[in-house]
């Protein structure tokens, strides 16, 4: 057990390190990093100082090590756009994105899993067909289009303008973008839960439980659902990736003041320092999530724990 956990942590660290290195080399390839990272109105002397500190006259390896070292000291560079440090811009926007993303994830998980369970338990019924139809719909629907439709119908039918500037932060103002963002993940959760539960229900041990006299309710709650939940957990990591990606677009559609919009503005203005910090934070979030998912998997499934001696 300890061995598996250590290996998984090690793997996460390596993954993160490679992501960081890729970011470094891309920035290095693109132009003068000193200009990119120094505060925008910095006098040439300050830019020069950055140049020395980044060691642009040094061999690539030294530069790389200094780059990593700078990160550990919390130096991620400054925004050319606003002159503020990259992390301060990021953390200022983080709560809005967390609120949106977590709400979307909760909607996706809650509704998706429920729909999937119902579909599996009513296999081949109208509800099952509806849920499966919905999951394809959710998969194929571009979230920016869906978002625009929500905005449009809100304005036409309910007289609400979602995402307008100065809009009050009401529940509806959160729900519309969160539902849009969570739609695709909801579809995959529904579909995945359904197939996982159907597969479990067809396992020989479920028949064995029936003939041992275990009542249906208990078979479902104590055996089928826990077993079916294991693969659904792995979906969590993948769907978080989808939500991070979707947030970029959804925030744009609903003018949601989060990291997604910061990212787009940074791309448009080539604000490298901010961009870099966002990419690093996404990599960190995703790596940690994937690690946690892996560990939860090990906890849920005794077969993953390896030998007794570990």
């Amino acid at each position: 057990m300890a061995r598996i956990v250590t290996l998984k942590i090690l793997r996460a660290v390596i993954t993160l390190l490679i992501a960081v290195s890729l970011v470094f080399f891309f920035i290095r390839l693109s132009g003068d990093p000193a200009l990119a990272l120094a505060p925008p109105d910095a006098p040439p002397a300050v830019v020069e100082e950055y140049r020395t500190r980044l060691g642009l006259d040094q061999p690539l390896l030294t530069q790389y090590l200094r780059y990593i070292g700078g990160m550990f000291q919390g130096d991620f560079g400054y925004s050319i756009h606003t002159g503020r440090s990259a992390q301060s811009l990021f953390f200022e926007r983080l709560p809005a994105t967390l609120l949106l993303g977590l709400t979307a994830l909760a909607i996706a998980l809650g509704l998706g899993v429920t729909l999937g369970l119902i579909a599996a338990l009513r296999h081949n019924s109208i509800i099952d067909r509806f849920v499966m139809g919905f999951s394809v719909f959710a998969f194929a629907m571009p979230n920016f289009f869906f978002g625009l439709l929500v905005v449009l119908s809100g304005a036409l039918f309910f007289g609400v303008f979602f995402g307008g500037s100065g809009a009050t932060r009401s529940f509806g103002q959160l729900l519309a973008p969160a539902a849009t963002l969570g739609l695709a993940a909801m579809g995959s959760f529904a579909r995945f839960t359904r197939s996982s539960l159907l597969e479990t229900l067809n396992k020989p041990f479920m028949t064995a439980l029936a003939v041992r006299g275990v009542p249906p309710r208990r078979r479902l709650l104590r055996h089928a659902i826990p077993n079916a939940a294991i693969p659904v957990v792995t979906m969590l990591g993948l769907s978080l990736g989808g939500i991070v990606a979707g947030a970029v677009v959804t925030e744009q559609v609903f003018s949601w003041p989060g990291i997604g919009r910061l990212l787009i503005r940074s791309v448009e203005t080539r604000d490298i320092a901010v961009l870099q910090f966002i990419v690093l934070m996404v990599a960190l979030t995703m790596t940690v999530t994937n690690l946690l998912v892996d560990l939860v998997y090990v906890i849920l499934d005794p077969r993953m724990r390896g030998g007794q001696n570990g």
């Binding site: 991070v244 970029v248 990419v279 990599a283 995703m286």
Partner: peptide, 23 residues
């Protein structure tokens, strides 16, 4: 497979936006 792990930690749209801003 490590490359796969790295890709899984960075949604492709983020990678694309980053690279498009660079070049």
């Amino acid at each position: 497979m490590t490359g796969v792990d790295v890709q899984l930690s960075l949604p492709i749209i983020i990678v694309a936006l980053f690279v498009l801003a660079m070049f």
